[in-house]
Amino acid sequence: MTQDLLYSITGIVLFGIGLFGVIAAAHIIRKLIALNTMGIGVFMVLLAAARHGVVTDPVPHAMVLTGIVVAVAGTALCLWLALQLQLLDSPVPEEPP
């Protein structure tokens, strides 16, 4: 019971840290890391909620596994968009006349 509670509380604290980062951070990569921290917090709460004494509920576990894959894919897409943004943003090198 105490172990489940520790997992839940850590997950919520991670979620809070991530939420702060998403709103407060200026750089897009920091925002992205914070968003992932939020996601991991949610996964931890879900995993802790899956434990019921001796029986472990497999449904939240499967949801978390799917969630991790989608989070990885979303992070990769965000990184790609951030790179494209930076490439657009960077000054074009002047061509010699």
Binding site: I23, A24, A25, A26, H27, I29, R30
Partner: peptide, 13 residues
């Protein structure tokens, strides 16, 4: 280079 060009800070608030 994680700070933004405009403010030089890593916090936007």
């Amino acid at each position: 280079k994680l700070e933004t060009r405009e403010t030089g800070s890593d916090v936007g608030l």
